[in-house]
Design a protein around this nucleic acid. Structure first.
Length: 1032
RNA sequence: GCGGGUGUGGUGGAAUUGGUAGACACGCUAGACUUAGGAUCUAGUGCCGCGAGGCGUGGGGGUUCGAGUCCCUCCACCCGCACCA
């Protein structure tokens, strides 16, 4: 019987669904194991070959764990709220709910084909009211709690109110922006409005006027991580700072726990360091400087309090609130000019040119240690958003301060002598203090401690920890998100809806355009907003991270109407054992999810401190984007690289090109054709030409040329094709192709003997559409110029090349998995994705290699067949066969445990090659091997398993274990080295003693001649490994 | 600039504790079978050399009987953050 993947797949898809073989129970004697994928945002483009990489890995691991006897939770769902659906709706008029449902259906179908063992009965969608009911509820809980630093956990706001009533806030240590102190009487004397304002300063979810990243084009506020280089990550629109009342989450309250608990989880160093950089904890001192002649103090933050004797001036951020107060009449114009200048500069300007600019306020502060008057400046290089927005400048020991001081002629007093550390840079915290009064002679570290003590003693400051982490802006002026469960009463006081009023459903409307000036679309729905009696609803919605911050908990008990998950379910599943997903979520999603989890932990709603025990970041599968540009005349002569660098912007858009390699899907057409010979080319042209003509596509044959040898001889290619098709076809169609640039694949040309090659050609075919791309798009691709090359034909000279980069619809380099599955089968596709390389590495997609895996699959299948008949022998296995089996069991299970799936596939190939040579068709070998392969190739193994006569599913079988005894060898091949260089190998008995080996090694033929005229000084024997003879 | 990571054949990659570098594939070469091959099978394939042999894991140095693996140093590339006081 021939291997027919699609027939097998259809059969078992149906069977598995009917039997619900992947349904998981919350009630099991077996140990639990929770394998989670980062749920996808269902975009309109569908899955490309990059998406399933992580899903395949996690599916293999889940299946493996199941076979090993674990009760495995392996769910899937959709992160379905968010901007793209809404953007899509604005251009097409299709409601986000509709397009989201369509996209989800498409994703599910694609996932179904790939044979994932998800328990779909637990599916979650963040836009489902039954789901976001609990997103809203958690928000109300955050609103109802504050972070108590004494208890080091979140406590109810009602406790805080009780404390205020008894003792005011003096003794409360909490994460808060409240600075003013009050006693119990003062508290009780306050009106409700004032009390509510104060409580707002404590709540973990709070509303506050704040500067936000406002994007007018998108009509919404963006989180810091959605802004890249001063423009929006999505769309690249400009972003400005705007003051608006915003809901925020007080994630900073958890900064220390988010940092220190990183040590308890198994994540990669890269990821942990990204998280800890984002938190950005630094220890330093908070200090107050008196302003000369005014009753004002400037609060600063410094990590180098030891250098205060060298503080010769101060700098405030231009936005600092004291600027207006401090500026003297004489300096007013300077300051106004500077403020105008800095306000006009966008974020992107500030980042791209870091000029030394600033202005003097005319005011002076007093250095508390030198008692000198030091000038107060304002400058862009001090950021309002970090620390206190003001610094003491120490030009002798800070690079930026130094540049500034030199530029404006300010005093520089050296305070740290680094002569003992010639290698140290200005910023290194080493050296001996000089010119620093009581600190003189101390080492920097010592001096910092001494200064902190002194400062506290003098009452002008104290040691303080600072974070880069900001509270999370949580309001979006968009339609497609969770409505806040908040009602403002007739006094404007924010109140949360009780659980029985949840979910607060997102009202249905067709009018979801962003409002003007930051109004949410919901604000236009007056019936919904106005509740009578003066109450109104909050009209902003939550950001996409809201739903994804806790979804892993919902899977534990996804249909529970009474809780986000029952305590029993949460206690059974505990936490996620293995989380697989892309690094693009390294900061935002993982940080918020950890924060929410810790909050729930504080409230005894989850049993663990961290949500994700182990995390694996799958690498990106990249695509190849090809491009062609017609070069200007001036390129004709000079050297290639020089030109590229110098003139890269003077190309004309002549042949923008869509599509990558031929075997890459083309936009809309979804072509996946590989052309390897002239006759293929002819067939291809014949079939496709009418389509292209009709649709206005131009056919362009393209490929890459060897780097450095960029001058291309068009005629050679023409000859090759002619030769390949000589006498067999009418090649008149080819003339069409000849009229356009035509090149040969880089892989072919790069071969040393291209000229001598008589074998098939690899011709990449790309389709050109004149409307597809423009110069701007080309530049946005940021192609890797190392792969660029010139080609000439009779029409001119072209710059061509390809870039390996992220797969994306907009780059026309997407490979669609459906076509791969159709051609090779899901099992082959799964195994090939694993075979590409280590799961964590990024790698370009290469369709050609899939043949190797396909060949393996058929060979494995063929082990069970003789003359197309299913025949397995019941004979007892021999030693060699047992060795292959047990070595494979050992290798595969160990490699799965360490997530090395590519080497697992190799091991299966080796085993199959070996058994094929042995002509082994014994059940005793093939049956365990089938189970072993089941996690990788679920369909094929299920079919074989049933052909072997089994009734139940192979996915419910028991994983075979290996016997060390079968791996033992009678004889071992030893490498024999002379002075560490291998000179021969020889077979020796595996139980030979050291002495025997020493003796035997010297007698090996081929070793003798190396010993002539030399003295054997030493023989090193590592039993079962090697022998090394040291001669001299 | 700071933090993290990676450098191995023509290509993707393997080598788990310092012990036969290049497993397994792709590609390529030759052959077999074929109307045909982009199917299948067989053999070969790190580089140089007719050979003996030499050289080889980004460069240089070191430790060791022995280094892709450990140490020092330099270089290149990728990712994240970036005027963070």
């Amino acid at each position: 019987m021939e291997y027919n993947a699609s027939k097998i797949e259809k059969k078992w898809q149906k069977h598995w669904e009917e039997q619900q073989i992947y349904k998981v129970s919350n009630d099991s004697d077996r140990p639990k194991y929770y394998v989670l994928d980062m749920f996808p945002y269902p975009s309109g483009a569908g899955l490309h070959v990059g998406h399933p990489l992580g899903y395949i890995a996690s599916d293999i691991y889940s299946r493996y764990k199941r076979l090993k006897g674990f009760n495995v939770l392996h769910p899937m769902g959709f992160d379905a709220f968010g901007l793209p659906a809404e953007q899509y709706a604005l251009t097409t008029g299709i409601h986000p709910a509709v397009s989201t449902d369509q996209n989800i259906a498409r994703y599910k179908e694609q996932m179904r084909l790939l044979g994932f063992s998800f328990d779909w009965s637990r599916e979650v969608k963040t836009c489902d009211p039954n789901y976001y009911k609990w997103t809203q509820w958690i928000f109300t809980q955050l609103f109802a709690h504050y972070y108590d630093q004494t208890a080091d956990k979140a406590l109810p706001i009602s406790d805080l109110v009780a404390t205020f009533e008894q003792a005011g806030n003096a003794k409360v240590k909490a994460a808060t922006t409240q600075t003013a102190q009050f006693n119990a009487e003062e508290w009780k004397a306050m009106g409700e409005a004032e009390q509510r304002d104060i409580l707002m300063n404590y709540r973990l979810a709070y509303r506050e006027m704040g500067y936000v990243n406002w994007c007018e084009e998108l009509g919404t506020v963006l989180a810091n991580d959605q802004v890249k280089d001063g423009v929006s990550e999505r769309g690249g629109y400009s972003v400005v700072q705007k003051a608006m009342p915003q809901w925020n989450l007080r994630i900073t309250a958890y900064a220390d726990r988010l940092l220190y608990d990183l040590e308890t989880i198994e994540w990669s160093n890269a990821l942990k360091s990204m998280q800890s950089n984002w938190i950005g904890r630094s220890t330093g001192a908070q200090l107050f400087f008196e302003v000369d002649g005014q009753d004002e103090k400037i609060e600063i933050y410094t990590t180098r309090p030891d250098t205060i004797f060298g503080a010769t001036y101060m700098v405030l951020a231009p936005e600092h609130e004291l600027v207006a107060k401090l500026t003297t009449a004489e300096q007013q114009k300077d300051i106004d000019d500077y403020l105008a200048y800095s306000q006009a500069r966008s974020e992107i300007d500030r980042m791209s040119d870091k000029q030394v600019t600033g202005a003097f306020t005319g005011a002076y502060a007093i250095n508390p240690f030198t008692d000198k008057k030091i000038p107060i400046w304002i400058a862009e290089y001090v950021l309002i958003s970090y620390g206190t927005g003001a610094i003491m400048a120490v030009p002798s020991d800070d690079e930026r301060d130094q540049r500034f001081a030199e530029n404006f002629g300010l005093e520089i007093i050296p305070v740290v002598d680094k002569s003992d550390y010639p290698e140290a840079t200005l910023d290194d915290k080493v050296g001996k203090l000089i010119n620093s009064g009581f600190l003189n002679g101390m080492e920097v570290k010592e001096a910092i401690l001494a200064m902190n003590e002194k400062v506290e003693e003098m009452g002008i400051g104290k040691a303080k920890v600072n974070y880069k982490l900001r509270d999370a802006g949580f309001s979006r002026q968009r339609y497609w998100g969770e409505p806040f469960p908040i009602v403002y009463d007739e006094n404007g006081f924010a109140k949360t809806l009780p659980l029985e009023d949840l979910p607060l459903e997102l009202p249905k409307t067709e009018d979801f355009k962003p409002g003007k000036g930051g109004k949410s679309p919901l604000s236009r729905l007056e019936d919904w907003v106005n509740l009578g009696n003066g109450s109104t609803r909050e009209t902003d919605t939550m950001p996409a991270v809201a739903g994804s911050s806790w979804y892993y908990l919902r899977y534990m008990d996804s249909s529970n109407p009474n809780a986000f998950a029952s305590p029993e379910a949460v206690n059974y599943w505990q936490d996620v054992d293995l989380y697989v997903g892309g690094a693009e979520h390294a900061v935002a999603h993982l940080m918020y999810a950890r924060f929410w989890h810790k909050f729930l932990y504080d409230r005894d709603l989850v049993p663990t401190k961290e949500p994700f025990k182990k995390l694996v970041n799958q690498g990106m599968i990249q695509g190849r984007s090809n491009f062609v540009y017609r070069a200007n005349e001036q390129f004709a002569e000079k050297s290639f690289k020089e030109k590229l660098e110098k003139y890269q912007y003077s190309f004309q858009t002549e042949y923008p090109i869509a599509g990558g390699y031929v075997d890459f899907a083309m936009p809309e057409h979804q072509l996946a054709i590989e052309i390897k010979s002239g006759s293929d080319l002819k067939r291809y042209l014949e079939q496709r030409k009418p389509d292209y003509d009709r649709e206005g596509w131009k056919l362009l044959l393209i490929s890459t040329q060897e780097v450095g040898k960029y001058y291309f001889n068009f005629d050679i290619i023409a000859k090759r094709i002619n030769r390949a098709i000589e006498g067999t076809v009418d090649n008149s169609h080819l003339e069409e192709a000849y009229a356009h640039p035509l090149f040969i694949s880089q892989d072919v040309v790069r071969k040393r003997n291209w000229e001598a090659s008589t074998t098939a050609l690899h011709v990449d075919v790309n389709i050109v559409h004149n409307d597809v791309l423009d110069m701007e798009a080309f530049q946005n691709w940021r192609p890797d110029y190392k792969n660029a090359y010139f080609v000439t034909n009779k029409e001119g000279k072209y710059l061509c090349g390809h870039a390996v980069e992220k797969m994306s619809k907009s780059k026309y380099n997407v490979v669609n998995p459906d076509l791969m599955v159709e051609e090779y089968g899901a099992d082959v596709f799964r195994m090939y994705e694993m075979f590409l390389g280590p799961i964590e590495a990024s790698k370009p997609w290469d369709t050609q290699g899939i043949n190797g895996v396909s060949k393996f699959m058929r060979r494995f299948w063929d082990l069970f067949f003789t003359n197309e008949q299913f025949v397995v022998s019941e004979d007892a296995p021999n030693k060699a066969e047992l060795k292959v089996l047990h070595a494979t069991i050992k290798k595969v299970s160990e490699d799965i445990e360490r997530f090395s799936f590519n080497t697992c596939v190799s091991a299966f190939m080796e085993a199959t090659n070996d058994l094929r040579k042995m002509k082994c068709n014994k059940r005793s070998i093939l049956e365990p091997l089938t189970i072993l392969l089941a996690p990788f190739a679920p369909y094929t193994t299920e079919e074989l398993w049933h052909l072997l006569g089994n009734e139940s599913s192979v996915h419910h079988a028991t994983y075979p274990s290996y016997e060390e005894s079968y791996l033992k060898e009678d004889e071992i091949e030893y490498p024999i080295s002379i002075n560490g260089k291998k000179r021969a190998t020889a077979m020796f008995p595996s139980d030979a003693s050291k002495q025997e080996l020493e003796q035997a090694a010297l007698e090996v033929e081929g070793i003798q001649k190396w010993l002539e005229g030399k003295t054997v000084r030493k023989i090193i024997v590592v039993p079962k490994r090697m022998v090394n003879v040291v001669v001299g």
